[in-house]
Computed example of a mutant assay.
Amino acid sequence: MTKALVLGGTRFFGVQLVESLLQQGVEVTVASRGNVEDPFGDKVSRIKVDRLDVGDMQKNFVHTDWDIVFDQICYSSQEAIDTIDVFAGKTKKYVFTSSKSVYELGGGEQGFIEEYFNPFEYNLNIGPKEDFSYGEGKRQAEVAFFSRAPFPVVAVRFPIVIGINDYTDRLNYYIKKVRDQADIHLVNLEAAIDFISEEEAGDFLAWVGQSDFEGPINATSNGNVKIGELLAYIEEKVGKSAIVVADTKEESDSPYNISKTWLISNEKAERQGYEFRELKEYLPSLIEEALIKINTK
């Protein structure tokens, strides 16, 4: 039986990853600080560990071995290097959750392909996550893994993950703004953005972990929406019109506020055999479900 360790599998699409692995008959161990109660009951084993304390990691994983390690919570080169030291000789494969943010804003209508950021040719700068922006931290983590890991590595580059269990409340932010008739600051309603659902994100991680693939790979639902289209979906479900305030800068509290189209291509993953969902087929029902949940709180 395949043995998998999931670093950070107790919320959002980490839960979906664990569920997908269990459905595949994988023996799963979840490693976390133990601050969030998970829904898995006796279906998984658990290790309580501080991901940011390399000594604690080494102590807890000293006599372990895994077929796959899934890392949901690595944000810098230093964290990646510490993790490599912990798991060297203890895993056959490592799947790291990276981000679309390794690409600069843009990508055009076709979207960035993986080669637009090549971690094998990027300079390594070792430091903790406080030393980097989010995007640069993910770049540096990829560089560290691919340049120093003695085991095969996959870096999965997700766009924004959306779902009913999204603790960041980014989609809910816009739903609440429309419902409450509050101002929404946006730079460009014509800018297009892509997403992946929490179910799809978890399933893809489990799938690529069991595949022979190594290297960076994008994973996103098929299709995209313009910011204006997204608001139109929300307006339809809420029954009110959005109050959009044109702005000249990207407001930090407006999570999808981008100045130009920013997309990634999932062609490589599709060539590997993964079938993605159509964004516009599930987005309206997700908005409706999220609205019901918001209104019942």
Rank of each mutant, 00 (worst) to 15 (best):
K3I: 03
V6K: 12
L7C: 14
G9P: 12
T10L: 05
V15A: 08
Q16Y: 06
L17M: 15
L17P: 04
E19C: 04
E19Q: 15
S20P: 03
L22E: 03
Q24G: 03
V26C: 13
V30Q: 09
A31C: 04
A31H: 12
S32R: 02
G34S: 11
G34L: 13
G34E: 10
N35A: 15
V44E: 10
R46L: 04
R46D: 06
K48T: 14
K48E: 12
D53M: 00
V54Y: 14
V54F: 13
M57T: 06
Q58K: 15
V62Y: 02
H63T: 02
T64V: 05
D67W: 09
D67I: 04
I68G: 04
F70T: 07
I73T: 15
I73R: 10
S76Y: 10
S76P: 07
D85P: 02
A88E: 08
K90T: 12
Y94E: 01
T97R: 12
K100D: 01
E104R: 14
E104I: 00
L105Q: 15
L105F: 10
G106L: 02
G106S: 06
G106R: 09
G107H: 07
Q110F: 13
F112Q: 06
E114N: 02
N118M: 00
P119N: 04
E121A: 11
Y122I: 01
G127P: 10
D131K: 14
F132W: 10
F132K: 07
S133L: 05
Y134M: 05
G135E: 11
G137I: 06
K138I: 01
E142S: 02
F146D: 01
R148W: 08
A149N: 12
P150R: 00
V153C: 14
V156R: 09
V161E: 05
I162Y: 11
D166Q: 08
D166R: 03
D166L: 02
Y167M: 01
L171H: 08
I175S: 05
I175M: 10
K177Q: 12
K177F: 04
D180C: 08
Q181T: 09
D183H: 01
D183N: 04
L186H: 02
L189A: 04
A192N: 09
F195T: 04
E199R: 14
E199S: 11
G202R: 09
G202M: 09
D203T: 11
F204K: 07
L205P: 01
W207I: 01
F213C: 05
G215L: 07
G215Q: 01
I217T: 05
I217C: 03
I217A: 07
N218F: 08
S221D: 05
G223I: 09
K226A: 10
I227D: 03
E229G: 05
Y233V: 11
G239N: 03
S241M: 10
I243E: 11
T248W: 09
T248Q: 00
T248F: 03
S252K: 15
S252R: 14
Y256H: 05
Y256K: 00
N257S: 15
N257R: 10
T261F: 06
W262E: 00
S265W: 06
N266K: 07
E267L: 13
E267I: 09
K268Q: 14
R271H: 12
F276I: 11
R277V: 02
L279F: 15
K280I: 02
K280Q: 11
K280Y: 01
E281A: 15
E281F: 13
Y282K: 08
P284V: 10
P284R: 13
L286I: 03
I287W: 00
E289M: 13
I292C: 04
K293Y: 06
N295H: 03
T296A: 14
